[in-house]
Design a protein around this nucleic acid. Structure first.
Ligand code: SF4
Ligand code: SF4
Lengths: 165, 165
DNA sequence: ACGGTTTATGATAAATTTGTCCGAAAATTG
DNA sequence: CAATTTTCGGACAAATTTATCATAAACCGT
């Protein structure tokens, strides 16, 4: 599963918000309720998550009419990692795959090495991909956010070499 | 976290069992309790997991004195995937990373492509690595199983090209 | 056949994650 | 100021995962 439900919702909401900011630069705040309904996220659950995100200063919020939430920084400055860190714990990135409590670094099993690579890639992605990357060609489609065809945007390379053609 | 606690325990137990078979070819069964104590896994929880594993015919069990559990097949024929499948669900390998319910394949977001790679790697590993691979140079160290220095055993390559030097 | 040993099973409890509800606080509008 | 709108915060409920327990069933040596 990799991410918790909460983290998934958080990313979805932030994405929605980022895209909305882009397309409605005049309006400052968007309501949590609207996001929840558009993305079919349980409202009260999302509201809780939003609180975490504001506490971590990824969002600013305003109460009252015309109030709502808004990105606290520009999409370029918000990484997936920031979002995950706000709602989840990221310790699973350092945890042993098969849960050995204290396998000393000098004694890696065969899994360790390959898994390390994977974890490094995951970390690389969530550390480098920003909301700006993700919304680049995303579009609203009857209210819902959809993200069409934009691969190659980040193209993680750890094994260098890269492109096929 | 990637794997559930249950899956982690299952792998640990199977590994222990495989190594034990190797070093004690004369004895047929090993008790669940012994494994639990050696690896510090909650006994009753492991007992439950063991039941799943036998139901999936990865283990055979025998009641009564001299009873216990034993691998149902040789370590070469037991893949991580088999173990995971017995105790977990593997659907997370096909799930969208950020939980979008029905993102059509024609509209991948930037994450999709990179994450696909990662999931492919994970799948490749759990599909190809067997208990035999894992115990190759593993050793018991005051009762506990430790797995020293054997990387390069599997060396997943999907991005071709591979080696730096 | 018996008693001791060991797994199998079903019931249950604790912990965590997920989801829901409600009242209070804050801001806007009139 | 009052009414309305929205977030905030705590408390609660449901679902899932993790862990525990008690008893039944199978086996073995005697
Ligand atoms: S070497 Fe193997 S057992 Fe040790 S921490 Fe790495 S994955 Fe876990
Ligand atoms: S393209 Fe993006 S949103 Fe769609 S399934 Fe893949 S990861 Fe999820």
């Amino acid at each position: 599963m990799i991410f918790s439900r909460a983290a998934e919702y958080a990313i979805q909401a932030m994405l929605y918000l980022a895209k909305w900011h882009e397309t409605h630069p005049e309006e400052r705040y968007l309501q949590t309720r609207e996001i929840a309904e558009a993305q079919e996220i349980p409202y009260y659950f999302l509201a809780k998550i939003v609180q975490d995100l504001t506490r971590f200063e990824l969002l600013t919020s305003a109460k009252g009419p015309q109030g709502g939430i808004a990105l606290a920084r520009s999409p370029e400055e918000i990484r997936i990692l920031d979002i995950i860190a706000a709602v989840d714990s990221t310790q699973y990135l350092s945890r042993c795959v098969i849960g050995y409590p204290e396998c000393t670094p000098e004694t890696p099993c065969p899994l360790h090495y390959d898994w390390q690579k994977i974890k490094t890639q995951i970390f690389y992605i969530i550390e480098h991909v920003t909301l700006a990357d993700l919304i680049k060609d995303a579009q609203f489609q009857n209210g819902r956010l959809v993200a069409p065809l934009t691969f190659g945007v980040v193209s993680v390379e750890l094994g260098e070499s890269s492109g096929k053609s």
